[in-house]
């Protein structure tokens, strides 16, 4: 039998040891974690313009992703369309001050006037311009988000990439995994006679060839989440779109 003193001593020493080891390991590996995370996010953004990259984004290595991304023009905007400079981004809590460092999950929780949004301008090897914006919303279990690329008219969708935190594999997770789903968005339009209409994910099959895509059977709530995320997310960007169009 151990006395209470011995027990407390044992537990204290062990906890301290474990804490020191884990904290040390975390500190050593943190730069690698951050780099991995940044590259992962950049891949997701480039996935929206997958068709216009030199090779598909899954076949690029990390250095190539960084290189392509370094040529992208990054812009940060507010909901009223005004631009935010680097210091403004840093003031919002992102040390790097770039658009790609913005955490949309954090921004969602801020007040409307304080939210900042990333926007990217990608120029393909063929010299065409693509505007990429980021949207975020709610799926069935947790958050979903996506990057949407537009052609130069900021109306026709050039490509999208979606991701999710915890959607059901085989059902809601198909928004990320099933290329038959996300490729449907290519060529769809978001403006109807100058009014923002966004793209509707229709359960049971698209009825409109220009503004609707087929839903995923068994994943109605996730699909509705995508519809909602796109219409609300694109609305935030509308002043910015107008300012580009002039």
């Amino acid at each position: 039998m151990h006395s209470t003193n011995q027990i407390i001593k044992f537990v204290l020493i062990m906890t301290a040891l474990v804490a020191v080891v884990l904290a040390g390991m975390n500190t050593v590996l943190k730069p690698i974690h951050q780099k991995n995370e940044a590259v992962y996010n950049k891949r997701a953004i480039l996935a929206a313009v997958n068709d216009f990259l030199p090779s598909p984004v899954t076949e690029l290595n990390d250095d190539q992703v960084e290189e392509i991304f370094s040529k992208i023009t990054q812009t940060v905007i507010k909901a009223d369309g005004s631009l935010v400079d680097k210091d403004g981004v840093i003031a919002s809590g992102y040390k790097e001050g770039t658009a790609s460092s913005i955490d949309m999950g954090k921004e969602r929780k801020k007040a409307e006037t304080e939210k900042i949004y990333p926007a990217y301008l990608f120029t393909s090897d063929a010299g065409k311009k693509y505007y990429i914006v980021t949207v975020r919303g709610k799926g069935l279990w947790d958050e979903i988000w996506g990057n949407i690329a537009f052609e130069e008219d900021i109306n026709t969708i050039a490509g999208v990439s979606f991701d999710h935190k915890a959607e059901t594999p085989g059902l809601g997770a198909e928004i990320k995994d099933n290329k038959d789903f996300y490729n449907q968005f290519k060529g769809k339009k978001i403006y109807d006679n100058g009014e923002l209409r966004s793209v509707f994910v229709r359960k049971g099959g698209a009825k409109d060839p220009v503004y609707e895509v087929d839903g995923i059977s068994g994943a109605t709530i996730t699909a509705d989440g995508v519809t909602e995320m796109m219409s609300r997310g694109l609305k935030y960007y509308e002043p910015y779109f107008q300012s580009i169009k002039g």
Partner: peptide, 17 residues
């Protein structure tokens, strides 16, 4: 828990996807 955290930190550094 300590060992699981070691695995988690290592995997995060080695294969993020």
């Amino acid at each position: 828990a300590a060992l699981v955290t070691v695995v988690e930190l290592t995997l995060k550094a080695v294969n993020y996807p």
